[in-house]
Design a protein around this nucleic acid. Structure first.
Lengths: 145, 145
DNA sequence: GCATCATGCCGGATGACATCGACCGCCGCC
DNA sequence: GGCGGCGGTCGATGTCATCCGGCATGATGC
């Protein structure tokens, strides 16, 4: 659906969402009204979900991250899912195939913080926790080909 | 480090990174030059890593996502890490404690696409794959308290 | 083959916006 | 009590986004 110019716009905006239209226009060889049109369309059709900001969690006090696999106890699936949605330290969660029903990313202030959160779901689900030691690939775009 | 006003700015920008300074200023009760100053500071100190754009991968043709746990064979850790960084379909990867050394998110065009990518690392690492069925929590901010 | 229409683009005018400089008030410090 | 730095406001200026009218292109229907 998106053509080559759309893809270039997406790439540019991924690197800096606050680039002025004029600059974007110059980079892709169009006028600013045209770029404005395209962005509006991309946003309307949902390809661009939102313009947002990448934050360093460490500087907000979340010096620790964990990836937790969550297996709800029998009959507790929906309860656990609701719980997951309500724990604000879970900043991302996927529902997946396999024994591990959910895979969640936790933002934590310290290791006791982890303990507290896992405790709060321990009676409704089994969990396997992996502490994040490094992030070799930080969120990036898939190929746009 | 960030005060209450900074946190409100972050919240506003997370929802819409292209909000004009004037609007931000009105929302937090400051003038636009002040807001501009604060944003510049937040960006310089790295708390704001980047202004970026949230994209719907499905509309780029990536109708499938998978979470893959990757255990490099003995002696292959660095090789595998380099490989991971070079596979563009891996849009996110954490290095974690435990048997699973890496946890990666893959963007895929179809199920055979998954097979192709896993094949390309099968002789250097063991993998466990979970297909994403739903995303109960889409990337969001942790509490800013 | 031609008229018609929709689409995507441009250029210029207008109004909104960001930026810059000058100035002010508050607070901690000597 | 005077001083300096920090964080703020205000107003002027230049840049920018948006709106509007018009044009070229390609598809559609007669």
């Amino acid at each position: 659906m998106p053509d080559d110019i759309d893809r270039r716009l997406l790439t540019l905006l991924t690197a800096n969402a606050r680039l002025p239209l004029k600059e974007l226009a110059a980079q892709v060889g169009l006028s600013s009204p045209s770029v404005s049109d395209r962005l509006r369309r991309l946003e309307e059709q949902g390809l661009i979900r939102a313009f947002t900001v990448e934050i360093d969690p460490a500087q907000l006090g979340y010096t620790l991250q964990a990836i937790v696999r969550i297996r709800p106890l029998p009959g507790r699936l929906h309860l656990v899912q609701r719980l997951i949605e309500e724990i604000p330290e879970i900043t991302e969660c996927d529902k997946v195939t396999g024994d591990d029903c959910f895979i969640a990313r936790l933002m934590l202030r310290d290791i006791s913080h982890l303990d507290r959160i896992l405790d709060s779901i321990a009676d409704k689900a089994e969990t396997s926790t992996a502490i994040v030691k490094a992030q070799p690939v930080l969120r990036r775009l898939p190929p746009l080909a």
